[in-house]
Design a protein around this nucleic acid. Structure first.
Lengths: 357, 357
DNA sequence: TTGTAAGCGTTATCAA
DNA sequence: TTGATAACGCTTACAA
């Protein structure tokens, strides 16, 4: 019981394999009548094209490699979802890997993914090892970094400045009259987006000549609700007069809010709390949590759109220069910082596209 | 500027490609000395093996196709994470697709994935179209359904009975003395796990001769926190004397709890609320939400372990009969149903492995 | 519109 | 332990 192959279909149809090959693709130069006959036989014989052989022959894998730190994080899960949605119409499959925020894991995934000859690589910004970087550069395919605008991009970029966004949110707290502002972040986060957010926080508090020492970082990334809750308890123990806290992410902020609920600290009256990322939880929490609105779906879709343009350009031998696509990341003021009634303000960073490099 | 290929390495090393091929794999029949020399040259020349060619030649793709309804759902994101973690040591890559709970999408993904000749398929249980089912059966590879124990499995199974688990949770509510119990679920959910949970709810309330009409289903799957909140409002408007609610998932239950917070309905005193899935939110909510504890990570890891055994068996020409691996899904009683102080009870369904089919 | 011939880069197989 | 040879199933390039 052998697998049906293209030559079987060809024989049954009384044509050559090339004709079958053409019939199964969007190749126009084939008689509609012939195509119909072949399509019928494909169905009857249960022929399933062998894309490995096709990839081998055409030297086009139909893959896009995608690296995210974690799938547990809604942001990256959404990014992956947005990517698949936008890649599918082009017949591209996603080769997805998650690194668990581990550089060694990241390096190994890049290495094994490249063996499958992806047509493009999409990697979440992080401090890559030199080898990871070299492998990506030498692969000779489009590389897109997402979720940050790196100081020294490998290739293309779809993201926003985590630092600037965190600074904007911190200024939001300052403008509300808060003076003793803390930051809850992640430990051992060198080169990560979380570290950028902390820098943005520091930019803003220092810019306003406020105390810049109220930093808590208890666990390694990713930190979630429970870590946020614990960190908030720690923060309030160490600096009881804290009147506002920026958290590295919404789940973390929700944990901080729940710590306040338990300790009967009024939010936002006594302490204002802000998150980052506009996760579902920030919208549905009571009070709703002020956050930076960014959409993983959008980042995924934009990255996929860029891939599409780059691959099309490639065939026309006119590959684009490195692109940077900025996505929106703006302050969403909600009940955890602003009492209902007061006008919620909204600082917006406009999306834009530009060239660099 | 051509890509370095195996023959380049072979020439540089003064050996045949077969020797290089052996050196790069765990093939024992090669002189350690030769292997070292080749490995050095591979590094120097920057050779990246072509896994497409290797797959083509060896007829082993190194892929496992994985289908989940959604990535936004932590359960399935975790499943995917668990799968990748457990597959990676075997050099297998995950071909991941999400269906958005759409059968047409599911069918198309199965079709295009099979073209890549995966060595196994892992699909989340759902009411597959007949064609999807046929494609999977005829692929001639191990098929594993996860997240449910289907009445008529395609092949292997790693899951639990959503119906039984939901019934257990409903009995938990009944044992607490609740009489007027509602269910918040999804609309148009025929054949889904959510529908099984509703059936389990009905089993239990009917078994106790209680009202079985308090059902709310406002939106299509997946429903989240906001839908849960709205549905809870609807439920309490229609049946104001409801004293307990089982929700199809934890995020949904959190939404229901938040609806009560807003409407100043005491949880659990006035209404007990239970969720499903042991998501982070159920643990961190105040009060913590009673739930069914199931681990996506475990399901992913178990499925991957099964794949490993099946593929190993395949080479020894002794493929296993259809396996069913049951994973734990037990009631976790928390503050949203049981006042702290009362002893939290825990009904456990033991995991087990058996044969069927 | 269809067909022919060559080859994509690796591994299976058998021989040395 | 190593090598020679023949696939693997499709598509590219060119010819008819």
């Amino acid at each position: 019981m052998q697998r049906v192959k293209m030559s079987d279909v060809a024989r049954a149809a009384g044509v050559s394999t090339m004709t079958v090959s053409r019939a199964l693709r969007q190749d126009g130069r084939i008689a509609p009548e012939t195509r119909r006959r072949i399509q019928r036989l494909v169905r009857e014989l249960g022929y399933v094209p062998d894309r490995i052989a096709a990839s081998f022959s055409s030297r086009r894998s139909g893959f896009v490699g995608v690296l995210v730190p974690s799938l547990n994080n809604t942001h990256f899960a959404e990014t992956a979802a947005g990517l698949q949605n936008a890649l599918q119409p082009d017949g591209l499959h996603m080769l997805l890997g998650h690194t668990n925020y581990l550089k060694a894991q990241s390096e190994q995934l890049v290495e094994t993914m490249l063996e499958r000859r992806p047509e493009a690589m999409i990697v979440t910004f992080d401090d890559h090892t030199p080898r990871t970087r070299r492998l990506l550069v030498e692969a000779g395919i489009p590389v897109i970094e997402i979720w940050e605008v790196p100081p020294k991009p490998i290739g293309h970029v779809v993201g926003f400045s985590n630092r600037a966004a965190a600074a904007a949110m911190t200024r939001h707290l300052i403008e509300l009259g808060r003076k003793k502002i803390g930051f809850i972040g992640e430990a051992q986060d060198i080169g990560t987006r979380g570290a950028q957010r902390r820098l943005g926080f520091l930019d803003a508090v220092r810019g306003a000549a406020l105390d810049d020492t109220r930093l808590v970082a208890t666990s390694r990334p990713p930190i979630g609700m429970l870590q946020g809750r614990e960190a908030m308890a720690t923060l309030m123990r160490q600096w009881p007069d804290t009147d506002a806290v920026l958290c590295v992410s919404d789940p973390c902020a929700f944990g901080a809010v729940s710590a306040c609920q338990i300790a009967r600290i009024a939010v936002p009256d006594r302490v204002a709390i802000a998150g980052f990322g506009n996760f579902e939880i920030s919208q549905c929490a009571v009070p709703a949590i002020s956050t930076i609105s960014v959409s993983g779906l959008t980042i995924g879709a934009e990255a996929a759109g860029l891939v599409r343009r780059l691959l099309k350009g490639d065939r026309e031998m006119s590959s684009l220069p490195p692109q940077t696509i900025l996505v929106d990341a703006s302050v969403l003021a909600r009940g955890s910082t602003v009492r209902p009634g007061k006008c919620a303000e909204k600082l917006t960073a406009r999306p834009a596209a530009q060239e660099h490099g």
